[in-house]
């Protein structure tokens, strides 16, 4: 579904990605692990298009999207739950969700998408007229995930969705991620600090370090490898 080939990107003169190759299969949860500064967030941003690729290729749903602006990538069914949420705090929960259905294709399906979001997060239905900036951290994260679902995505990338949340909420977030795969058949690329929980949720795992992929394999294989766990995951 998504193929990243020898991707290079960075910020101005500082190159962050040094040619990682990644392949993501439809209907799977792929986890991207690695220490801070490994380039995981940059990889997601480059796939979305908010950071420009300076080398390599990104293919999505059979198309080369390397040069496509990000709003066209969203049209194709690609979206991101960004790190630090980036919800529209001055707007109501409902308006936040509706902005997720901004593109033409998503707008047509906005009623079904909204039902889906409310069934996943009934609390958002209760609070739909509340200003989203007044919600708790966990609830704001629900808005972010809900908004991403409103874009009618095929692949959702999630950047640290459990960051800064209470353990109980973290658990809920991971349950939601698995539900999205099992019940809706979404493909998910997950970046997480919480390596243990990610390994449990994921089908396939990539380990990134200093802008390159150092190891990869099925989640069970990575879990079984003491060498990888000690070297990169600190488990």
């Amino acid at each position: 579904m998504l193929t990243v080939e020898k991707l290079e990107a960075g910020y101005g003169p500082m190159q962050v990605l040094w040619g990682p190759d990644i392949e993501i299969k439809e209907g799977s949860i792929t986890s991207l692990l690695g220490p801070n500064g490994a380039g995981k967030s940059t990889l997601l941003k480059t796939v979305l298009g908010s950071v420009a690729a300076t080398g390599g290729k990104i293919r999505f749903a059979g198309r080369d999207i390397t040069a496509l602006p990000s709003h066209k990538r969203v049209d194709l069914g690609l979206t991101l739950v960004p790190e630090g949420k980036h919800i529209f705090k001055e707007m109501t929960v409902f308006d936040n969700l509706m902005m997720g259905a901004y593109r033409q294709e998503a707008r047509i399906h906005r009623k079904e998408s909204l039902e889906l979001v409310y069934s996943l997060f009934p609390l958002l239905a209760e609070r739909k007229n509340q200003k989203s900036g007044t919600l708790s951290g966990g609830q704001q994260q629900m808005v972010t995930i809900g908004r991403a679902l409103m874009t009618k995505p095929k692949l959702i990338m999630m950047d640290e969705p459990s960051q800064g949340l209470a353990p109980k909420i973290v658990l809920e977030i991971f349950e939601t991620v698995e539900k999205l795969k099992k019940e809706i058949g979404l493909t998910i690329l997950l970046v997480e600090q919480n390596a243990a929980a990610s390994l449990d949720a994921a089908d396939y795992v990539y380990i990134m370090h200093e802008g390159v992929i150092k190891a990869q394999g099925s989640a069970s294989k990575i879990k079984a490898s003491d060498e990888i766990r000690e070297a990169y995951l600190g488990l």
Binding site: D75, T79, P82, F88, E90, M99, Y102, R147
Partner: peptide, 11 residues
Amino acid sequence: ESDEGARVCGI
């Protein structure tokens, strides 16, 4: 409010 938030909505 947020460039990145707008981008992930397809704006």
